[in-house]
Design a protein around this nucleic acid. Structure first.
Lengths: 149, 149
DNA sequence: ATGTGTGCAAACGGTTTGCACACGG
DNA sequence: CCGTGTGCAAACCGTTTGCACACAT
C-alpha cells in the first residue's frame, strides 16, 4: 500500500515513540511545501497561517527534533551565517549556490568534490573519517549580471 | 627597505586614512601570533593580557574594520556555526578540516575543488560569477580514531 | 491516567550600538 | 584642535529554557 512522503516521515516519528501533534504535522508540511530553504522564523510565519496559536518555541523544538531524527537538515547560506535554514533530508549529497543579486538558491550535485576533498584529507593529512558539513558558494547568476548592464 | 608583515598591515590602514591606535596594533598582533583561529572572545582575552583596559566592543569594531580592509577573514568551524573565527588573509585559498574529537583544525589547499565547483556552476547552472565562501569539512583525525580503540 | 509536547515569557550568548570622553593626526 | 576611536552599558536578535497546562497515547 502507498504511503506519501509526509506519512513516511510521520511514521518515522511514531516508530521513535514520538507523539504526532497538529503542530508537528503542520511544521513538516510547511517545510515539504516550501520552495525555498526557510528559516525558523519563516516556517513560523507560514505555519501560523494554518495554526495561528503555535509558538516560535515549538517551531524551534520541533526543528531540533526533526533534525535529530534525520528528517531535515540545517544549512547556512547568508554571507554571515547568522541564521539557520532548513530543508528535507535527501538521499544524495548536494550543495547550494546563493545568488547575491536576487537571493535565489541553486542546488547542485558534485560527487567529484566530495571525493577529492575526502581523498586529499585521508592521504595527505592523516584524517580518518570525513564528514562534509557545508560548502557555501556565492556569487551572481547569469540573469543578475545581464540585468545589471 | 624591509617592512614586517605587521607593519605592512599597519601601512594599509594608514593609507585608508585610519588611525593607528594601541588597541588596533595589539589586536592585529594577537591574530598574527595565534596558532589557532581565534574567536572574538579569545582575541579579547589575549589582548587583555597586554592591554587590560581594552573593551570587547573595540575588539568587535576592530575585527569588522580589519575585515573591510581585507586584512583578516571570518570563518565558521563549529558544527552549529554559532560563532565566528578569525585569521589573517592569505594569498592562496584554503579550506579547513575540524576534528570533532580533539578540536584540531587542519588547513589544506585544493585548487581542484575550486575549479570543479566553479566550472560546474558556470556550465550547468547559468552562474556568472562564483565566490566560494566556505568549505567546512569535519570528521575525526587518525589520532582520535586510534585513541578511541 | 500518564507523561510528552506546548505556549508563554524570561533567559541566553554572541554581536552591535548610543553616548560621552580620549587621543591620534 | 578636530574628528575618529574607545569604554561602558544597554540593546539586539536568533535561539533556548523553566514552568504550568494541554493533549496524544
Amino acid at each position: 500500500m502507498f504511503m506519501s512522503h509526509h506519512e513516511q516521515m510521520i511514521q518515522v516519528l511514531r516508530e521513535h515513540g514520538l507523539r504526532i501533534t497538529e503542530q508537528r504535522r503542520s511544521i513538516l508540511d510547511v517545510i515539504e511545501r516550501s520552495d525555498k530553504h526557510p528559516t525558523a522564523e519563516e516556517i513560523f510565519d507560514d505555519v501560523r497561517k494554518i495554526n495561528p496559536g503555535i509558538s516560535l518555541a515549538t517551531v524551534y523544538r520541533t526543528l531540533a527534533m526533526l533534525r535529530e531524527n534525520g528528517l531535515i537538515e540545517q544549512r547556512f547560506f547568508s554571507p554571515e551565517h547568522d541564521r539557520s535554514h532548513f530543508e528535507l533530508s535527501t538521499a544524495s549529497d548536494h550543495f547550494h549556490f546563493l545568488c547575491l543579486g536576487c537571493g535565489k538558491i541553486i542546488e547542485f550535485e558534485s560527487a567529484d568534490v566530495v571525493h577529492i576533498l575526502t581523498d586529499q584529507l585521508k592521504t595527505n593529512h592523516s584524517v580518518a573519517k570525513v564528514i562534509i558539513t557545508c560548502v557555501c558558494v556565492e556569487g551572481y547568476c547569469a540573469e543578475c549580471v545581464r540585468r545589471s548592464k
